[in-house]
Simulated assay, not measured.
Amino acid sequence: MEDSYSVSSPRRILSLSKKRRASVSFQDPDEKLSGFRLPEEHGPKTSEVYGFVGSITTIVATAIFLIWAYVPESWLHSVGIFYYPSRYWALAVPTYAMVTVVLALGFYIGLNFMFTPPPTSLNSLFDEFSREPATSKPSMEGDDQPIEPISDIGIDRINHLMFKDVK
């Protein structure tokens, strides 16, 4: 990447381009290792622009909504605004939105209850992804034990481990 004419020093790099123009760069040599260097392309990122435009749009829309909802009609007429939606919608739209969110949450919870098997069903213990433990016993050759393959622990073993002292 560097030219054959470049000279490195701890605090600055003097590089000569192919046209023999000198350019001095005061770049810290640790910047490449630390990852805190400026990107090659300067200017705002698209996500930053969209975020800024979105926040400004939200503020302007909120201000227009509050003016429309709370300023008396005579003030709007004196400014020259004669056409605007009915004030009914200032309460109706937020109310409909909140009711829609509450109903969607209730519907989602209801669907989860409908599709969850009962606790007595074997489908809550076994499914198509269940794996039986390996039946082969590893050989006892010193301390080097192979790692057992991933498998499910049986419910009888879990009950024995958790409730062995309870009678």
Rank of each mutant, 00 (worst) to 15 (best):
R131M: 08
S47Q: 08
A90F: 06
G80M: 01
S74R: 07
F36M: 10
S6D: 15
R11I: 08
S136N: 07
S25A: 13
D156P: 01
I150P: 10
P133E: 04
H42L: 08
V102F: 05
K45C: 08
V24T: 07
H160M: 04
A97N: 05
Y84P: 00
E2V: 07
V60T: 04
D28I: 00
F115C: 11
V79M: 13
I153K: 15
V166F: 15
Q27N: 12
P44N: 05
V49Y: 09
R87L: 05
H42A: 13
L14H: 03
R11L: 15
E40I: 12
Y50E: 09
E48A: 14
T58C: 06
T100F: 07
R21H: 08
K19V: 03
G106T: 14
A134Y: 05
T135F: 06
G80H: 00
S34W: 09
K18W: 05
S124Y: 12
E128G: 07
P117M: 01
F107G: 11
G142P: 02
G51I: 11
G54N: 02
F36P: 02
D28C: 05
M98F: 05
T57N: 07
N123I: 04
V93L: 13
I158T: 14
F126Y: 12
L33C: 01
R37H: 13
Y83H: 14
G106V: 08
H42E: 15
S121E: 02
L103Y: 04
D156W: 02
P94H: 12
F107W: 09
G110W: 10
A22H: 06
S121K: 01
M114E: 08
P72T: 04
M98V: 10
N123K: 12
K45D: 14
D3L: 10
M98Q: 02
S17N: 14
M1S: 10
S4D: 12
D28M: 03
A63I: 06
L105P: 00
P117R: 01
S86K: 06
S130L: 02
F52L: 07
F113A: 04
E48Y: 10
D30N: 09
G51P: 04
H77N: 09
N112E: 10
L111E: 09
S124P: 07
I59R: 01
E48D: 11
D144L: 14
S55R: 04
E41K: 07
H42N: 08
K45Q: 12
D144Q: 14
I67N: 05
